[in-house]
C-alpha cells in the first residue's frame, strides 16, 4: 500500500472547495497533481488527497504577457504545446526532453513540479532564469515571482498554485539550459540556465541559475553582473563562468562532490552563455 493511511481522495469541481478542504484538513491533506512524489513518499501522515484535475487547469496558452501554463498540465502536454515550440528558440521544450522519461512526464504536472521543489529540478532551474511568475490562490488570486515562492514557502500554506507564466521577451533575448547527470534517465547532478537580453549587442538583462548543487536552483548574481553592458565573447563568458565557479554554493552528496560540482558550474555556465551568444548572433544577422 503506497499511502497506508489515506482515507479520502477528493476531486472537487471548484477551486474554492479544493482550498477549503486543504484548509480544513491541515497537514493531513495534500494537493495532488501527478502524485509521483506523494506515492513515492509513502507518507503515513497523508489522509486526504485533493485532486485538481476537474478544475480545468490543464492548458498552455499564448497571452499578451507570455505563455500561461495551468497547474495540472503535464510535462508532456507542455512539451508538446505549440505555444512553446518557438518560445526562446524552444528552450523549454529542450529542457523538458531531458526531464525523467515519458512515463514520468505523462504524470508529473507543472504545479506539482513547482510545489515539490526538488533541488535537482530542471524545470525550476530554467523557470527561475526565465523569470517565471506563479499564480497562487488562497481565496484571492495573486501573482508572484517564482523566486518568491522558494524564498518563503509560507506563501503556499495554505494556497494552491493555479498557473505559471513564462514572460514574453522581445527580440534580442535568448536563453539556454544545460544538464549534467550520470545517465540520461537521471536527475541532474547539476543544471544551469541563463537568460540574456541585449541591446545593440550588449547584455542588458542577465539571469543565470544553477540547481542541483545539490540545493535547489538559485540565481548567480555576481556572475550575471559581470556581463552587464558587455558583449558576449570568449573573455566575458570565461569571466562569468569563472565567477560562477567561485561563488556558487556547492556541497557533496552521494551523487557528486562539491568540488566536482564547482567544475560543472563553470562548464555549464560557459556552455549556456556560448549557446546564447550563438543564438543572438544568429538573430542579428
Amino acid at each position: 500500500m503506497a499511502l497506508s493511511n489515506l482515507k479520502e481522495y477528493v476531486r472537487p469541481d471548484e477551486l474554492d472547495v479544493a482550498l477549503s478542504l486543504v484548509k480544513e484538513r491541515g497537514t493531513s491533506a495534500r494537493v495532488i497533481g501527478g502524485g509521483i512524489d506523494l506515492v513515492r513518499s509513502s507518507s503515513p501522515d497523508i489522509e486526504t488527497l485533493v485532486d485538481l484535475s476537474h478544475l480545468s487547469l490543464s492548458y498552455v496558452r499564448q497571452t499578451d504577457k507570455g505563455v500561461a501554463i495551468g497547474a495540472t498540465t503535464t510535462l508532456t502536454e507542455i512539451l508538446e504545446a505549440p505555444a512553446l515550440e518557438n518560445y526562446l528558440q524552444g528552450v523549454v521544450v529542450e529542457m523538458l526532453h531531458q526531464v525523467g522519461a515519458p512515463p514520468l512526464r505523462n504524470l508529473a504536472s507543472m504545479g506539482g513540479t513547482l510545489a515539490s521543489a526538488h533541488p535537482w529540478s530542471d524545470v525550476i532551474t530554467l523557470f527561475l532564469a526565465l523569470g517565471a511568475q506563479v499564480t497562487l490562490y488562497n481565496g484571492v488570486t495573486r501573482m508572484v515571482p517564482l523566486s518568491d515562492l522558494y524564498a518563503s514557502r509560507a506563501l503556499l500554506s495554505p494556497a494552491i498554485i493555479t498557473e505559471a507564466l513564462l514572460p514574453a521577451y522581445a527580440k534580442g533575448t535568448a536563453a539556454a539550459f544545460m544538464k549534467f547527470s550520470r545517465t540520461k534517465f537521471d536527475i541532474a547532478i547539476l543544471n544551469c540556465a541563463c537568460l540574456i537580453s541585449t541591446q545593440n549587442g550588449d547584455c542588458k538583462g542577465v539571469r543565470l541559475t544553477a540547481g542541483g548543487t545539490p540545493q535547489l536552483a538559485t540565481l548567480l548574481p555576481a556572475a550575471a553582473e559581470v556581463l552587464l553592458g558587455r558583449r558576449l565573447n570568449q573573455t566575458s563568458i570565461g569571466q562569468a563562468a569563472g565567477i560562477a565557479r567561485e561563488t556558487t554554493l556547492v556541497r557533496d552528496d552521494l551523487r557528486a562532490s562539491g568540488n566536482y560540482r564547482r567544475e560543472l558550474v563553470y562548464a555549464g555556465v560557459k556552455r549556456c552563455l556560448t549557446c546564447v551568444s550563438r543564438q543572438l548572433s544568429g538573430v542579428s544577422q
Binding site: Y9, I32, G34, G35, V39, D51, T76, L107
Partner: peptide, 15 residues
C-alpha cells in the same frame, strides 16, 4: 492514451 508507471498512480486517480 499516455504511458505512465502504474506503480506511481493511485488507483483512485485513475477512477
Amino acid at each position: 492514451d499516455r504511458v505512465v508507471n502504474s506503480c506511481l498512480v493511485l488507483a483512485a486517480k485513475a477512477d
